[in-house]
Design a protein around this nucleic acid. Structure first.
Lengths: 220, 220, 220, 220
DNA sequence: AATGAATGAGGGTTCATTCAT
DNA sequence: AATGAATGAACCCTCATTCAT
């Protein structure tokens, strides 16, 4: 009763060392499971638990990602990409420029961008080409949102993308442990307060200098 | 036989088991080392490393604190107490009420209040009498600062102590790993932006409800 | 160690998680090594030593048995099962009923039934279904031997299975430490003396009440 | 190095350092506490617990006994001495010789002679002069009881003191763990059965050879 | 390619023993 | 002499990673 299933894929031409369909599915499941479990249990969650959530054996995880940093690398790419999507759609779909910024900031919570912070700071290779590309795309998307708000005169002019991203990353970071049931309620309050601080006119003079995402790579 | 039991010391209030001088010194070294290493490496830092930093053997740590939660408990008390000190001196020494608030918020960074966040959420006993007392003292001190600013018409009226404390805790949380050399530079920018958002008049309506520190115990 | 999928295997009764051949071999080696080392060094023998004896890494032991109680549980099952075997073959192969009892008692030494005593009394779950089943099988097998001897008029009538099992367990318990080279020589003498005390007619009146194995679970 | 038994009476002249009265009291408290806690929790009980029970600091224990084996040595002497007392009074106070043996055997339970077994087998120096003396006294006392029973024709002739002592030691050994609430009830049943096996005429031929206490030292 | 199993290194904790008061 | 405190070694157990099926 062992019907031949996947082998019948003749006709597929792979100009690259293409992943088999099931392997690709596993890979994406693993990244999704890693994002969720790291948000839920912290970045130190056992890799076996991630594999279990993804419904694959632990060795399969290692076939796809050599070690934890590499897995984190790909989770980071995933989160950055989805966050850039949010920025783009916020800009496209909101008529008011500052309202687009508000929408983006609150939407970033759902993408668990707060999980990025633990992820970025470990032993990750911050100069990896894919990461640079993802960072540039994210920066461009967020800069577009901020630029529109700035151009409309509603956003103070002494801040840059890095300032915004670090702040919302910090404000949305999950608490260690897992007890944060109603925590999101606070998060949105704090984001709102922070957004109020971003509005023009500036109510105080900021210390330090405006930061881009690229600055974060080197500085923090 | 000159056996005079130590607790029979007269005059002094001896409700404590009377630590020997060197033991007390070790105890305080351990708490300080724990605060610093947890800020630097996260709350999962090996206890052996904390003991090493404190310059004592690992078992000495266990003599003073039965396990990690108990150590965290005492670090939390220490941070809360020192932070309350900061609030009190800010209020006492600044003539302008909102300026006192600004000073307190920026000073809290030095007390590593960001370390409180990981500490509060773990398996700590949030109802411990000492913790309740520390919380009440901290809340009173911060409320005094905020109340003065509110009374002077400079602080928006829709926020409470819990909102402030959680936000600055999150904004000042250290990055995992240890690479955060220039990170403080950003922290003070973000706190400044957040403070600008706190100023009256309120620029937007906040979601959720104002929170006290006691709410945090139950909610988050 | 609960496989979810493997049960779908057809034909064979697959209530077990389907261990791989080498894993099953390791598991049995571990139980054997545990029985021997616990007999030799007592029930507190380091688990690392057991793993070493079994020729596997320490973590392999933990893969199979979550902790010491679980390992002890399985050692107990093993000893009980093998002891029941002894009772059954003694009854089947000896023509004289009391001689069957003698043979069983002396044979139990070789099965290290003395190891059962330390094992039964610790933090083991005495109500585990497997243990109940093993206890019932052992009780039935020993009761068959005793019943035959009783029916033949050679065994005193005021004792039950629990009395016999506890006594031989105690008499055959290994000495702590490891010096018991010639100890078995004494053991067989004492068992013989005890068996003489079991013969009918009873030479004295016994205190207390006859005990089944189930009584031991609750009483001792 | 050891102070001889505490009964350093006047005849012995002070070749020993002459313990102060309170030190002597501590020493005896420690031995008593050790006997009790080892019976209750097994011979591996933490020395700190013994010191706590004795109401002294842990270092005081070490002042009196260099290490665990030395403490065990003295506990053993104590138990042997008290057991010899029991043999002597049984012989003196019972008119029937075999009844004196029964009384001694059941009385030995109260002296926790079963705790001797773990104690004897560890790293104890079995050739220590004090231990030899205690052994000889115990052997003489028990041999007197057995001899009387033998002479009266009620005790089988193929057993010696070692056989009896080992058997009752084993039969009365406490179970590891501490759950043995009603265990004594069984102990007396088994001792009674064993005593029945000791009665003349012998009902079977014993394997091995009769053992003295001195044999145990070398053989087991 | 996928997986269950194996493993060594490392952290948490206890405890026998030594040290300083 | 007595004691509270300190300590390192050893044990239990987990987990990232590798191996064999």
């Amino acid at each position: 009763m062992t019907a031949v299933v996947a082998c019948a894929k003749s006709g597929k031409k792979g100009q690259q060392p293409r992943l088999r369909a099931d392997a690709l599915r596993n890979r994406e499941r693993l990244i999704a499971a890693a994002r969720e479990t790291m948000v839920e249990f912290g970045p130190e969650v056992p890799l076996d638990e991630i594999a279990r959530r993804a419904g694959v054996g632990n060795a399969t995880l290692y076939r796809h990602f050599a070690d934890r940093p590499e897995l984190i690398h790909h989770v980071t790419l995933s989160v950055m990409s989805r966050t850039a999507d949010r920025a783009e759609s916020a800009l496209a779909e909101e008529s008011d420029a500052f309202q687009a910024l508000r929408r983006f900031v609150h939407a970033a919570v759902e993408e668990r961008i707060g999980a990025l912070c633990p992820l970025l700071s470990d032993g990750v290779d911050r100069d990896h080409p894919d990461l640079i590309a993802a960072r540039e795309r994210l920066e461009a998307a967020v800069e577009a949102v901020m630029g529109a708000a700035r151009d409309s005169g509603q956003l103070r002019t002494d801040i840059a993308v890095g300032d915004l991203m670090v702040a919302i990353t910090q404000l949305t970071r999950p608490l260690p442990g897992n007890s944060c049931t109603n925590f999101d309620q606070f998060v949105h309050r704090h984001l709102q307060l922070f957004l109020d601080g971003l509005q023009a006119p500036a109510r105080s003079e900021l210390p330090g200098a405006a930061a881009t995402l690229d600055d974060l790579r080197r500085r923090s």
